[in-house]
Design a binder for these strands. Sequence first.
DNA 1: TTACATTTATACAAGCAGTATAATGAAAAT
DNA 2: ATTTTCATTATACTGCTTGTATAAATGTAA
Lengths: 298, 298
Amino acid sequence: MNNRRQNVIDTAHKLFIDKGYQATSIQDILDGSGISKGTFYNYFPSKGELFIAIFRSFYTKIRHEREKLLIGQDSADIEIFIRQLELQMMVNKQSKLLILIEEVRVSNDEELKQFINNTLLLSLRWMYNRFIDIFGESKKPYLLDSVIIFHSMMTHMNHFSYRANPSGTPDIQIIRYCMNRIVRLVNEVAESGEQIIDPELMDTWFPNFTNHLDPCHNDLLQSTTELKKAINKALPCDEDRTRAIELIDFIQDELMQSDKPRKFLIESLLLTLKTGYAPQVQANIDTFEESIHSCLSR
Amino acid sequence: MNNRRQNVIDTAHKLFIDKGYQATSIQDILDGSGISKGTFYNYFPSKGELFIAIFRSFYTKIRHEREKLLIGQDSADIEIFIRQLELQMMVNKQSKLLILIEEVRVSNDEELKQFINNTLLLSLRWMYNRFIDIFGESKKPYLLDSVIIFHSMMTHMNHFSYRANPSGTPDIQIIRYCMNRIVRLVNEVAESGEQIIDPELMDTWFPNFTNHLDPCHNDLLQSTTELKKAINKALPCDEDRTRAIELIDFIQDELMQSDKPRKFLIESLLLTLKTGYAPQVQANIDTFEESIHSCLSR
DNA sequence: TTACATTTATACAAGCAGTATAATGAAAAT
DNA sequence: ATTTTCATTATACTGCTTGTATAAATGTAA
């Protein structure tokens, strides 16, 4: 039953937080959740996949909430971006995801390492795109450098601030501090023309996301982003728009996160989307549908 | 024989670089260096201690070379600091120390983790003191924030630049890029008065370096630094000065790195120092001698 | 040659991830 | 009502890990 499986996930998550991923043996998880070894390996093919299951649930949640904050807002508004970051930090703090990732990022499990690596890169790419929204296309050549610096700044200031005073500095203060720094930094490097890493190279960092994993996922990401942008422009800011975005997010998730995407679900939602909500963005929906079908027929 | 032991260290270092620390089993090291298990545990009490042995040799080297660059120079000169950073990056790159540390920093071995942690903090503290040299005492309240940002910036830009183009951006370019950023940043936060972490708190981050490890080491560090500063001021920039600094460094190392500091060596060197080289800095030498004796009589 | 230290080979303990299998139980289909 | 199906359990097993223990072999210096 799914309830039992979820219980194992929760128990393992607690144990991982308490003792660390490596230090938690499968036996610990069995004892903690009261199941047998057979059942465990019936639920998860390996300890690494269990971790991925934990991680995926939180990360999917973050992605959704994060996009929700953007609906109907000006994507160039820094305050929205700050709210998105705040949300991320909150989820990370409560689930201790970042601490666990640090540990797993260098574990023995090659598959797990690559998964984490990809997720971090995706997170970086999201931030890069948001920086383009905020600082404008003209600053593009300097925004990958800036994002890398911003990300590392946030991570480390957060780490040491927590260490200096566990109950101390509120997240928002660190975010604003880093944001103040990076705004100046972007203008500075744009003016002096200093560039270390060409953003074009970022795509080459996704080794198996674009290669061994279905290339269609890439198309899907592309068309989803485009479609959402179009909808945000075309539709007024109301319930319909919100619903449409939610539909699209659900379809994307089902296709990318699930092993066996439920075709009937997707077909139905797509129909709703086409007829009900968004006749104005027909072209984008067509592209979207195309990439969906190429995903389904892999 | 010491030669055999060193051979084991070298072999292990190679294996660690190739396969990673965790993935390298002791059996691999035995096979690689052609010794038996008994001999291994005769040389090193554990795999973790072997790692520390590897690490320590490189880090000691870095510390020495780094200080040598400062002899007879203006400690506020940014160019000297840049040269010191360049040196560090070179040694790290060639020995892949940083990559290994990343892995070990989150391993199961609690003792090893703490050792690495301490070393990183020492490195941060060194950088903080150098920042005080460079930016002046007046900027002190903002320099810990700045150092944390600078350090994380360097690490990550280096990481991603290597990833984007392994044979690419030379170290010096990244260092200068980060240095340009941080100079502006320091002035910026000093002007606006934004502070996240109070530098006073840094000392509380050394859990067992100041506690379970001899407190005398702290005194020793203090008096060594003071003495070297005094010598740099008092003596002309010649061979005598260089020799004196080298003597001091050797004594400090022998006391802090060796399990059984060779008392006769230290006594002898101290005498040389007192009579031969530095009669002008008697006061400092007295303090130095005091902390040496408190270290020896622990 | 004798005495001592180092090294080797090997067996061992306790732990790990993951596989395999026979027995149990309970719901579902006939 | 009986049989089939399927998840679950307990347990034994493989092959790996770090680290300990020990007797035999080797070298080395007095």
